[in-house]
């Protein structure tokens, strides 16, 4: 029998988690998954969707804080995210359907830990950290240390993700997320990549590149970043970074695509994400989502 309580505070939620409950907010993974017979609902659920304060997007000198209940739709429409954390907007606008984006939360997406999650690669490239409320106080971890496998994280069962923090971005930062999609809407990432670059005097001084649905977890690709860093971001460097991302991929063969195609597409989406990130860093207009604006004969 499934039990359900609704938490009014973070403390109540953490106490419920410690007693064995699983958190639920938008329900777009948990409820839909149960209906599809993927896994039944947990025996005990704690609703966290009414906890005050967890749905806020807050800008500070240190960066931007995204409460765990922030919806994908809220991310997409936030001016600061669109301007300075553009890759996250590129990704959030692609998640599921209109209904999923209105209902689904960033916290749910992060903790579901799917290797195909769209927001994961942008968050990694933008240096995201996650803050958990735990019975022994708050704990913060780099997102890169959070995901360990499909559906698996380093978070304990009594830890509640309360916020994701992205550090302040430097001047001339540009970021983008691009995924392969077979149709225009209602898609899942078959292959995706995010890039964030900082330019200084025409040179790439910092590059972050992460790949989606190409390994058991969303992961940064250092070799790709190294191929780009210190260059002018011209075609040879971009191509080298794209190839490095493809080489780092551990693609699977399944009904969505063959491993061969996935690896080839890893290079394509990485190239497009890097190109779009560089273009944005230079102040060029690449409309959100970059997936659509870099499609076809773009560059």
């Amino acid at each position: 029998m499934t039990g359900y309580i609704r938490a009014n505070t973070v403390e109540e939620a953490v106490a419920a988690l410690a007693a064995g409950a699983r958190p639920i907010a938008g329900g777009t993974d948990l409820v839909v998954g149960a209906r599809q017979g993927k896994q039944s609902l947990p025996d005990a659920l704690v609703g966290i969707h009414r906890i005050p304060g967890l749905g806020a997007i807050t800008e500070t000198d240190a960066g931007i804080d995204l409460g765990t209940l922030v919806s994908h739709a809220a991310i997409v429409s936030h001016p600061a995210i669109r301007e300075r954390y553009t890759a996250l907007a590129d990704a959030s606008v692609l998640v599921g359907s209109h209904a999923t984006r209105a209902q689904g939360t960033l916290g749910g997406n992060v903790m579901h830990a799917s290797p195909a999650m769209d927001t994961g690669a942008p968050l990694l490239c933008l240096g995201g950290t996650a803050t958990f409320a735990t019975p022994s106080g708050d704990r913060t971890t780099d997102l890169v240390d959070l995901w360990t496998g499909p559906g698996e994280t380093t978070a304990g069962p009594d830890e509640l993700l309360v916020a994701v923090h992205l550090p302040a971005s430097a001047q001339a930062t540009g970021s983008a997320y691009v995924r392969l999609q077979y149709r225009r809407h209602m898609e899942i990432a078959v292959v995706g990549a995010a890039a964030a670059v900082i330019l200084d005097g025409g040179a790439v001084t910092r590059a972050a590149i992460a790949i989606t649905a190409l390994a058991p977890v969303i992961r940064r690709v250092e070799s790709a970043e190294q191929a780009l860093t210190g260059t002018s971001g011209g075609a040879p460097a971009v191509e080298a970074a794209a190839q490095a991302a493809a080489d780092a991929a551990r693609p699977i063969d399944d009904v969505r695509a063959s491993a061969t195609y996935r690896r080839a597409m890893a290079a394509v989406v990485t190239r497009r994400a890097v190109q779009a990130a560089i273009a944005r860093a230079r102040g060029e207009e690449i409309p959100i989502p970059a997936t659509e604006s870099t499609q076809g004969s773009w560059r």
Partner: peptide, 16 residues
């Protein structure tokens, strides 16, 4: 069947 659902049986959407 390998794709008995609307995620992997890809109908065209209104956007397409």
């Amino acid at each position: 069947q390998l794709n008995p659902g609307l995620l992997d049986y890809k109908l065209q959407t209104a956007s397409d």
